[in-house]
Design a protein around this nucleic acid. Structure first.
Lengths: 188, 188
DNA sequence: TGTTAAGTGTACTGAACGGTTTATATTGAA
DNA sequence: TTCAATATAAACCGTTCAGTACACTTAACA
């Protein structure tokens, strides 16, 4: 197997294990075994476990936003509908077979120091989600896209937490109903 | 030192360390050292680390809700105002010196299996918060206390996540402004 | 075909993990 | 004052941790 595909494979395997079991609970040895590689190879590609975690979070950010925007475009056929579709995309995610909450919220929980690069990359992901929803708001002609995106993102976070901690997948629909008020207000 | 106070002391010390550094990242030895006790004593009071974690979460639930209701009553002098004061209480918490997000959200992130007793106790805490806000809603004469509590709790979770992951403490005020819409609608 | 880079399994490091054991000291109540 | 419970420090258990060292194999390429 060539170099980049091997590196990608390690990151993908690590992503699954870190997401399901957490970062500190997942050992390098488990990742090595699951990826069916040697430890030497792993440390040829990543300087340390933290370095691997950062690579995993960078991949997760790209993968998640790619899937998310795809779902939003699937559920919302007009710019205005896409703002609501954000919550349909959430609901689909919640009901998927491997939902363990938001990986970046989980990462921030394990690495509470806001200066830690792991915490920082989590904040960056949230910022990119904010930017994405703001773009949707602009396209829909919202009066104050920043404000609307801030509001919708807050509802999104709330839904994610309720879906994960309490298993309340319907939080996506509750959040969508709430969101309609702010969307209508911003577009009206 | 008598038995119950010693046991309490261990739980309080463990609470601080678990909250700040996470559960899997905090070793028994660190707790033992910080509490200035022997390992034997620790294992006389707790069967295992998981047992200690559960005791810590039970204490956190009681302490947190006690402080929270106190703050709500401080910021809100009428039943209707107390519904809004929930977010003033959040803001005060966010700006405190030791804020590392919601310990139960963090716990659910590290113990993703919803059947795990640690995850279950986190869901129970959220349920008690829901019950508390519903009580406030009833006292304020809300039309549909369950629905209003569900809405406010979703906003609360969203604010907590933004405050912790992104360091956006103002999320409490943003959530409060959003909450007013639902409160006014329910009380109107 | 010989060189080089990247792969492999295995063994190893020192430290930390959760948890137990032992032998001793302290302490409160009968 | 004695007894029993509970505390203590420290050594110890086997396991796992992140990370390294080594000897060997594979495969692409000049």
């Amino acid at each position: 197997m060539a170099q980049p595909s091997k590196k990608n494979h390690i990151v993908e395997v690590a992503l699954c294990l870190f997401y399901k079991h957490g970062f500190n609970a997942t050992g390098i040895e488990k990742i090595r075994a699951e990826a069916a590689i040697s430890k030497k190879t792993l440390y040829n590609h990543f300087a340390s476990k933290d370095d691997l975690i950062l690579a995993v979070l960078r991949l997760r950010d790209v993968q998640f936003r790619r899937n998310f925007t795809r779902a939003v475009e699937h559920f919302g056929k007009t710019p205005a509908k896409r703002l609501e579709a954000v919550f349909d995309a959430l609901e689909e995610w919640f009901n998927g077979k491997d939902f363990y909450g938001c990986m970046f919220i989980n990462a921030s929980g394990e690495f509470s120091d806001p200066c830690s690069p792991i915490h920082s990359i989590s904040a960056e992901h949230k910022r990119r989600m904010y930017d994405y929803v703001m773009k949707l708001a602009k396209e829909a002609g919202a009066k104050n896209p920043q404000k609307l995106s801030q509001q919708l993102n807050l509802l999104m976070e709330g839904a994610i937490v309720q879906a994960h901690v309490s298993g309340y997948k319907l939080a996506a629909r509750r959040a969508k109903e709430m969101a309609k008020l702010f969307i209508n207000d911003a577009l009206g």
